[in-house]
Amino acid sequence: MTEAGPQPAIHARDAAVVKLRRLTVAVLAAAAAAAASVAGYVASAAGVRATSQGVAAAPSSIPPVPAPAATVPLAGAAPSGISPPASAPAPASAAPVAVSGGS
């Protein structure tokens, strides 16, 4: 098995990740709750797809990315899985503090 990344990079990252990890999980959890279940992308402990749609067996011991599990949209959420905003943007009444643009 390969271990990704030189160790110094991993060590440096880990210190930062400790503070961010729970929030990353929170973001994922919110996304999952709003739409496609993140758990649907990963294999269960038994190596069985956590999806009702099923995926053909993979040649390796690591299962392939399965199709997403059935979505459980929140009230008002579109069935697509991409969560719409709680409310549409409003015309700004104050001077902008930032720019949304291509990068």
């Binding site: 902008p96 930032a98 720019v99 949304s100 643009g101 291509g102 990068s103």
Partner: peptide, 19 residues
């Protein structure tokens, strides 16, 4: 958020100045 929400300029390029 601040009252009225976060005001954000929309532009082609993110490096555009807010003003």
């Amino acid at each position: 958020p601040p009252e009225g929400g976060w005001p954000i300029r929309i532009a082609d390029d993110h490096s555009t100045h807010c003003d």
